[in-house]
């Protein structure tokens, strides 16, 4: 465990907890894409198939449980909680899961480290994670008002991506056998998707104005 990996995990954890806390406290999910949240729940469910079979560390197991629990809780709140679901921007959140899930599944069947169920699912989860933010970014573009918490949520997710890239660079130079092309390329694609959002986020922060994305 290096400092970049830890910082990446912590910003990832904070992003999910900020969102869950926001929904739980103000009983609103305005501006949050249910499509993205369902895709993340699917990402964690398919990636952590090894949770009870391969023990890495107590830290890993606990983090996996938190990510699974929090992502499914968010989906539950948005779909089932009678107050929260009323605030969901259903008409604006029109991205189809299918268009992201199917190509990722096909790619995972072709590009994986080993053709086993667990490895194909692991590759699928990486590809899907890379693009799962797209429905959220589309919703941010459409919604005129981006509240601070939604902005912070996407910012923390982007920070997590950036720290993971530093982690891979660090590990590449310190661990001789550490080469994971699939992880790196899908991770890089995912980070690039945030670059545009980051540009506007930093501008609004620098000029001390409310975040507003161009049409």
């Amino acid at each position: 465990m290096n400092i970049f990996r830890l910082a990446g995990d912590m910003t990832h954890l904070m992003s999910v907890l900020v969102l869950l806390l926001k929904i739980h406290t103000i009983k609103s999910c305005a501006g949050i894409s249910l499509k993205t949240q369902e895709l993340y729940a699917l990402v964690f469910a398919t990636r952590y198939l090894d949770i009870f079979t391969d023990f890495i560390s107590v830290y890993n197991t606990i983090m996996k449980l938190i990510f699974l629990g929090s992502s499914f809780s968010i989906v539950w709140y948005m779909r089932r909680h009678k107050l929260v679901r009323r605030s969901y921007d259903k008409e604006q959140d029109t991205f189809r899961h299918f268009f992201l899930v199917l190509p990722c599944l096909l790619l995972a069947l072709v590009m994986n480290e080993k053709f086993t169920f667990k490895e194909v699912m692991w590759a699928f989860s990486l590809y899907l994670e890379a693009v799962a933010i797209l429905p959220q970014l589309v919703l941010l573009q459409r919604t005129k008002n981006i509240d601070n918490l939604t902005g912070q949520y996407v910012f923390l997710l982007g920070a997590y991506r950036a720290f993971y890239i530093f982690n891979w660079i660090y590990r590449y130079f310190t661990e001789p056998h550490y080469v994971h092309w699939i992880t790196w390329i899908s991770g890089l694609v995912q980070t690039l998707l945030y670059a545009d959002f980051f540009y506007y986020y930093f501008n609004s922060w620098k000029n001390n104005v409310k975040l507003h994305l161009p049409a």
Binding site: H12, I56, S57
Partner: peptide
């Protein structure tokens, strides 16, 4: 062990 790919990241 050989043949098992270890995914130690989240």
């Amino acid at each position: 062990s050989p043949g098992i790919i270890e995914h130690d990241e989240l």
